Computed example of a mutant assay.
Amino acid sequence: MHSVSVNVEPGQYLAGWRPEAGQIFVPALSDSRVGDRVAVRVGIYGQAIRATLYGKVAMVRRMGRPALPPGVDLALDRASLPAAGFLATAARGEPVSFQERAPRFPCDLPLRVEHAGGAFDTGALNVSDGGCAVRWPGQLPLVGDLVVLRLGRGVFAPAARAVVCWNQPGGAMERSAGLRLVLEGRAGRAWRGVVAGVARVGRRPA
């Protein structure tokens, strides 16, 4: 998966957003290929709102000009459509009303994290259908970094790809990071089973 952060002018965002098709033009990633999975952290100049959009590259524009820069058309995942709509509302200068987030269930779930060529054992502080917050014992990752979560022990344990959505500095026992998981195939089924198991033991949503 490719991961990148971009900031765009309000008019540029609105010109590239096609809600009827569920697609957005992103002035980046012109070295990617059609079908590549992408996570893009989008900011609107002059607005505080930021959102991470997920999807697949539908078209690549490798050559550009000032009014039409290189970039990609991104076919958004269904779960990213509301966030893209929030960004469009902010780009028009209208008040943004956020929907309630998916419930987070507090837990102490052992996980193995692979990041930047290294790996370490840690624990999830909470889990949800789309991600989790994990303790981060070393140097915090950057927003947009890609990580892999091993859901169990051994080389055959399901491995879920994830993108860092936020990080929280603090003392050695307080550093944490929020991860948005790419839930596909065996890893997706395994993660949904983990969340269902945490919910079944009576954890109250946070």
Rank of each mutant, 00 (worst) to 15 (best):
A91F: 11
L179E: 06
V195P: 05
Q12L: 04
R153G: 07
L76I: 01
G93W: 10
M173W: 07
R153F: 12
G117I: 11
F105L: 13
W17R: 00
D31A: 12
P27L: 04
E9N: 10
A39Y: 04
S32F: 06
V38Y: 01
P95E: 09
G193N: 15
G185T: 10
W191T: 10
D129R: 14
A190S: 15
Q168E: 10
L109R: 10
V182G: 03
A75G: 10
Q47C: 10
D121L: 13
G11M: 04
V201Q: 08
V57D: 02
D73Q: 10
P66W: 08
R65H: 08
L53P: 02
M173D: 11
A21Q: 14
V26T: 05
P158Q: 14
R112N: 08
A119S: 15
N167M: 02
L125S: 02
A58H: 08
Y13S: 00
G118K: 13
A88E: 00
P19H: 12
R112I: 15
P19W: 06
V147H: 08
D129M: 12
L125A: 05
G138V: 02
V38Q: 01
P141H: 09
A190R: 15
G154A: 13
Q139N: 05
R203E: 13
G35E: 13
V164E: 04
R41Y: 00
A15V: 01
V60F: 05
R189L: 15
Q12R: 13
P169G: 04
D108G: 01
W17V: 01
N167A: 11
V60I: 05
R186S: 15
A67H: 04
R33W: 03
G152T: 13
P103T: 04
W136S: 06
A88T: 00
D77N: 11
H2Y: 14
V155M: 12
R175A: 00
L76A: 04
S30F: 09
P70Y: 01
D73Y: 12
G144H: 07
V4M: 06
G43T: 02
L140G: 03
V127D: 02
N126R: 01
G185A: 15
E114F: 09
A190N: 12
G178S: 05
M59D: 07
P103I: 06
R18M: 07
G22H: 08
A83N: 07
R150K: 15
V127E: 04
G154F: 12
R200A: 15
H2A: 12
